[in-house]
Design a protein around this nucleic acid. Sequence first.
DNA 1: GTATGTGAAGGATTTCACAGCG
DNA 2: CGCTGTGAAATCCTTCACATAC
Lengths: 260, 260
Amino acid sequence: MATGRTHRPATRSRGIPEATVARLPLYLRALTALSERSVPTVSSEELAAAAGVNSAKLRKDFSYLGSYGTRGVGYDVEYLVYQISRELGLTQDWPVVIVGIGNLGAALANYGGFASRGFRVAALIDADPAMAGKPVAGIPVQHTDELERIIEDNGVSIGVIATPAGAAQQVCDRLVAAGVTSILNFAPTVLTVPDGVDVRKVDLSIELQILAFHEQRKAGEESASAAAAAADGAVPAAAARRTPPAEQGPDGDVPAVMPA
Amino acid sequence: MATGRTHRPATRSRGIPEATVARLPLYLRALTALSERSVPTVSSEELAAAAGVNSAKLRKDFSYLGSYGTRGVGYDVEYLVYQISRELGLTQDWPVVIVGIGNLGAALANYGGFASRGFRVAALIDADPAMAGKPVAGIPVQHTDELERIIEDNGVSIGVIATPAGAAQQVCDRLVAAGVTSILNFAPTVLTVPDGVDVRKVDLSIELQILAFHEQRKAGEESASAAAAAADGAVPAAAARRTPPAEQGPDGDVPAVMPA
DNA sequence: GTATGTGAAGGATTTCACAGCG
DNA sequence: CGCTGTGAAATCCTTCACATAC
């Protein structure tokens, strides 16, 4: 069943590598902070430190966008903010719907990062009739029955799924059928979508499990290098040495955003 | 300041590549579902479909764990569940604390994925004195003052930060000083941590921005290939063709989990 | 002099394709 | 004969190191 299809390059988008795209938001955030402090220019070194990456990577990333820096000086903060925003498509306004207004959905609705730039919560949708009309984050919750109408009326192309796992695929199908082409999935399920629809997922338990793997490895090394310290129930001693920012979690993302 | 340090290989953990580690939880989830349906064995093809990856990748991933399959037959579901659980360190119990019990923190506390396997919410911590004692998800919230004591008493090595961005670094510092060596950060900030501490981050606005990038690109291609359709405010028409599972969001993670 | 921009080198990850075992 | 396990090829990503421009 089509596993060994010729398979398009999938990654790389009009020249900009996926790994770079995944870091642009980080740079943008650091730049926005600088902009608010009225800092006029930054060097790759400084900006890289603020974003938690190394400077060579940052320069390479920016080189895909064009030559926006000045040699011997650095980058103009405002100009870069604009260029990255434009590249990410944040100069336009993206209406998003959140489906599933439980604790998580409510948290997402209240999250300030939406309004920050480019995104607007167009509607909150929940299957529970008792929730209908109740305002969350100042927006009245609407019933799932309205889903298709809401999508179309608002021209929504990005949907956030925060439902229980069992409902996610069904919600996803309806979103896609109504015209949504990008989905952010918080439900712990693999979603099946048509060609041309992007899915990204955020999954607490996966992240925890990855941490547990490394945590276990640390414990193992401890008793290996330090010649079997206190046996099992040992409380890991806090390390002491400080170190500069350094890379972090799911940056170095190679998401394959599945243009399937 | 020390960006160009010699820098250890960073990735690859005792032979298992980071990219593989990031997928093990996906396989585990798919296998658990099969186990619950009492399916005795699966082929790499079937399991790959369920996990949303391709079968060659899955086989390669499993090859790092050892030879747990049977040629001509497939993999024993129960056995694989056990092996992956063990590899991920889920056969032991990891107490975690959640700091910042707002909407998001409450959502995380209520999330069933914790109890599922290996993780246990040892404590909920919040800076608001008014929250102290109030039960969330059946667990009483404790005040930040208690943080160090809680970490030590419970031997907590994994902390979840769900505070506002402004408080995250400070909370992080205290967690680390108290002995936490793995942090899952939901606050939109880059955390600075000492050597030996792992940080992973989950960031809604970054995910949305990545989706927006691809969404914008789709719109551009539309008017490029389909010879300039309706100009700007065009509501994207829903695609039609169905396709099999296919890769998804932040799987193909290359997280660099910063053993810094 | 200083910091960007970038070929080239070096790693890591994915995919191929098939040998080899049940 | 079917499906796993894996060298080898192909890709993608990161890092180096320096020419280049201000």
